[in-house]
Design a protein around this nucleic acid. Structure first.
Length: 542
RNA sequence: GCCCUUGUAGCUCAGGUGGAUAGAGCAACUGCCUUCUAAGCAGUGGGUCGAACGUUCGAGUCGUUUCAAGGGCGCCA
């Protein structure tokens, strides 16, 4: 008995066919019962399909029960309008423990899908520290990748560096002025420059590294300074993300996309039939597909809008052979979705080739007031400060435990004050408690058949463990890391109840102990796997 | 004006393809540490699921309308 729900589905399909009703496994929905009176599992097949064969639901249900194979089932009841409730034999449930222990780190892992997914996220301009919004995107993006991988997909994490736009020019100008100020020149930093402290720091570093070997009047000085600054900013970003347990497989640069006149070639060779001139600019007929307005790709001054290189970049990614591209973007990129999909559709890709996961903006609240985060002014708190103040586990858990679509306020005072009551500790504590029990019982035997389980808390926990593989699938399908955290809370609660009510180590009753140790071991495995899939550590002691 | 997202307990949020009395954490209150970690457990109180219609055996979930909040509709990125 590897999968209890699938097994029940098969039995129902078989029973229905005996009655001359054709059902497939997909027509049958098995739910974990919410109330104990309703047994362990329930199905609404009779309600759903009774009308097809002209019977009333309760009548159909009772015929199904008559016909079904009752192996592993202790009792079946009809309830309410026609639900069928299954009460399972304990043996049938207990068997899962052995499977979990055998599979260990791989329990819950999906089969290899042979499906390649590229997930692009964060993609911040290298002009300053990452802030809370990036932190949320990093936590969500990285967790989506981990879930995909665990579910059996091939995943590439990618970071796109927009290093050809005017933000980079602004970075260079800001560095230049900070450098001049260091030299004692009386120059003011303009309003639209980057005012954050890190610009000053990088200017200082530049001054040290080049120790007098640069000439502010030389032609390539500003270019050298700008590239130096960008490199430093990017290194900083990479380091902060690593601290946040987020590592990228590929960093792509806009300058590389633009190399060798590539953008122009693509525009002429692949988009000629969809482009037209107007007022001296070149437009793409995106309205032929999903957009409500045609978009400019070349400005009247001959330079590209951000859009055209971005299209090329997406085509480059696709040329590497991915089956799906996922962009994790801030909600202010809503307008971007349909125009990019339209551009890809011009090249024959389906609109499902690119999926955009919009992450709602984080509002930073400090002392009851909203603080506008801005790279320009340097206001707000950085990813690094967040990790230092709140901790990586708590921060990641916080961001991931809300659906990406939820608008969320980050109250700094509250986060600091309540960092110790973060739900993540509830889950980690459950893991630590199990670790300790297993450590203390090293010399005792473990019964992987878990023959002696049967108490309420044990069975509740067992049912939750059984749910894990399905939860992973569900989270992958919906790209919803919060589905995992919801599961983790449920699992932790069941573990704590089990721990409190069912004393594991009892040297007077070694048979019960052996079964409970097996359950503890299995539960610890599932908790660890679940935490791992959202990038949160599973400590053995707290 | 058009489009997207959101609206569920005092607060922050969950509620797979519609299902049986709507859940969790925090906050409030009541019990529980001589025994594996009390960062815990058990329990109480707290809800017209923004509002109104509709679809059906059944709606927090689907449809229409409406109210409110945030975002998007650049030859900015």
């Amino acid at each position: 008995m590897m999968n209890i729900e699938q097994n029940l589905k098969d039995k129902i399909v078989a029973a229905a066919s005996k009655l001359g009703v054709v059902l497939t496994s997909n027509d049958v929905i098995i739910e974990k019962s919410k109330a104990v009176e309703h047994g362990d599992y329930a199905t609404n097949v009779a309600l759903k399909n009774a009308s097809k064969i002209g019977k009333n639901p309760r009548q159909f249900a009772s015929e199904l029960i008559e016909a079904i194979d009752k192996d592993g089932i202790s009792k079946i009841e009809i309830a309410g309008p026609g639900f069928i409730n299954f009460f399972m034999n304990n043996d049938a449930m207990n068997a899962i423990v052995k499977k979990i222990i055998a599979e260990g780190d791989n329990y819950g892992r999906g089969e290899k899908k042979n499906f390649k997914i590229n997930v692009e996220f964060v993609s911040a301009n290298p002009t300053g520290d990452l802030h809370l919004g990036h932190a949320r995107c990093a936590a969500v993006g990285d967790s989506i990748c981990r879930i995909y991988q665990f579910a059996g997909y091939d995943v590439t994490r990618e970071f796109y560096v927009n290093n050809a736009g005017n933000q980079i020019a602004t970075l260079g100008k800001s560095l230049d002025i900070r450098l001049r100020q260091l030299k004692g020149e009386k120059v003011e930093l303009p309003e639209d420059s980057y005012h954050a402290q890190d610009i000053v720091d990088i200017a200082k570093q530049f001054d040290q590294d080049f120790a007098g070997k640069y000439d502010t009047s030389a032609g390539d000085y500003l270019k050298t300074l700008t590239e130096y600054g960008m490199k430093k900013e990017l290194e900083k970003i990479e380091k902060d993300l690593a601290l946040f347990r987020t590592k990228f497989d590929i960093y792509s640069f806009e300058t590389d996309v633009r190399k060798d006149n590539h953008v122009q070639k693509v525009l002429e060779s692949k988009f000629a039939q969809y482009s037209y001139q107007q007022d001296g600019a070149t437009f793409l007929r995106t309205t032929d597909f999903l957009d409500d307005k045609d978009r400019a790709v070349v400005k009247s001054d001959g330079s590209y809008t951000y859009f055209m290189p971005d299209i090329c970049y997406h085509l480059i990614k696709l040329s590497r052979g991915y089956d799906l591209l996922v962009d994790v973007l801030g909600a202010d990129h809503y307008g971007y979705i349909n125009r990019m999909k339209s551009a890809l559709m011009m090249q024959g890709y389906s609109k499902e080739t690119l999926e955009v996961e919009l992450v709602q903006i984080v509002r930073l609240i400090k002392d009851g007031k909203e603080v506008k985060m801005s790279k320009r002014t340097g206001a707000g708190i950085s990813l690094r400060e967040l990790c230092e103040e709140v901790g990586v586990d708590a921060a990641r858990y916080f961001f991931v435990s809300r659906a990406a679509s939820s608008h969320l306020d980050f109250d700094l005072n509250l986060a600091l004050e309540q960092s110790s009551s973060n739900p993540v500790y509830y889950a980690q504590y459950a893991h630590a408690r199990l670790s300790k029990v297993l450590e203390l019982a090293k010399d005792l035997e473990i019964d992987e058949n878990a023959a002696k389980l049967g108490q309420k808390q044990e069975m509740d926990l067992l049912k939750t463990l059984i749910e894990f593989p399905k939860t992973i699938e569900n989270a992958a399908k919906n790209r919803g890391p919060h589905i995992i955290t919801t599961y983790i809370q449920d699992l932790a609660s069941k573990i704590h109840a089990f721990y409190t009510e069912c004393r594991v180590i009892d040297r007077e009753h070694l048979d019960v102990t052996a079964s409970r140790l097996a359950l503890a071991k299995a539960s610890r495995i599932v908790m660890k796997n679940a935490l791992n899939v959202i990038g949160v550590s599973a400590p053995d002691a707290m």
